[in-house]
């Protein structure tokens, strides 16, 4: 028996909007720790890892570990039917091939049930080693989203270079080139507007902008994004989900042939 009650149902709606275009089908894993997902895009270039900790739910019952295969497009369709202020409850019986989403309006005057078919998904769970990153950039998520969108109108790839002075996003295309430098700035009034760079050595990596732009669909989940870069690892683009966990996107770099 599984029963997860999330008072801030809009979080789950936002999570699905953030990942549904990157991953078609995925297993949601439910354990005492929380509600989680790990899935790769169909080209195996990007990986998304989601964790919503059990403590973040108003009610969290998960009698035994359960893996539920879902089509994320269909799940997003169902969650779109929940109001932004609705409480969302997920329910599944042991051995059932369906999951039920229950939506309650804040005043309890409207209660909806949506039952969705589960699917068998053969997916490999990858071990993501703990890593020391050469550079960690923390910046406003809206700023990062704007940069990725702007650069993708010029080129297909972005070179992210981190030095002590700042983080530079560069692209080139048929019409020309673009460079955007964000300097470290931790003296702003609001912490969510700061750009903070922790660096042990300079790093410069190239990534496909198509994927970066897809990751920025998680912007509504957090005002801050963290980019973790090492010369020999996929970049980690992390959006923390307040009080609950995180959504992390891993993207393999492009390298000179």
């Amino acid at each position: 028996m599984l029963e997860l009650r999330l008072v801030q149902g809009s979080l789950l709606k936002k999570v699905l909007e953030a990942i549904k275009d990157l991953v078609n089908d995925a297993n949601f894993d439910c354990s005492a720790t929380g509600f989680s997902l790990q899935a790769m895009d169909s080209s195996h270039v990007a990986l998304v890892a989601l964790l919503l900790r059990s403590e973040g739910f108003e009610h969290y019952r998960c009698d035994r570990n359960l893996s539920m295969g879902m089509n994320l497009g269909n799940m997003a369709k169902m969650l779109k039917c929940a109001g932004n202020d609705d409480i969302i409850t997920l329910k599944a019986d042991d051995g059932s091939d369906t999951v039920t989403f229950m939506f309650e309006s804040p005043t309890q005057d409207k209660i909806s049930d949506f039952e969705m078919k589960l699917m068998d998904i053969d997916s490999e769970h990858l071990g993501i080693p703990e890593a020391e990153y050469h550079a960690i950039v923390r910046m406003p998520s809206s700023e990062f989203g704007r940069i990725c969108k702007d650069l993708s109108s010029i080129g297909d790839t972005v070179v992210i270079s981190v030095t002590k002075e700042g983080v530079k996003f560069s692209t080139r295309g048929d019409i020309g080139t673009a460079n955007i430098v964000c300097r470290q700035n931790n003296t702003v009034d609001k912490p969510e507007e700061a750009t903070i760079i922790e660096m042990t050595e300079p790093v410069s990596l190239t990534f496909a902008l198509r994927y970066m732009n897809s990751f920025t669909k998680a912007t509504p989940l957090s005002s801050i994004v963290t980019l973790s870069l090492s010369s020999d690892l996929p970049v980690v683009v992390e959006y923390k989900i307040a009080e609950m966990g995180y959504i992390r996107f891993y993207l393999a770099p492009k390298i000179e042939e």
Binding site: M40, H44, V45, A46, L47, E124, H125, L126, G127, I128, P129, T157, T206, A208, L233, P234, Y250, L251, A252, P253, K254, I255, E256, E257
Partner: peptide
């Protein structure tokens, strides 16, 4: 020309 690496080049199956 840049070659797109694969995430499986970095993370292994458990």
């Amino acid at each position: 020309p840049c070659l797109q690496r694969n995430i499986l080049d970095y993370f292994n199956g458990e």
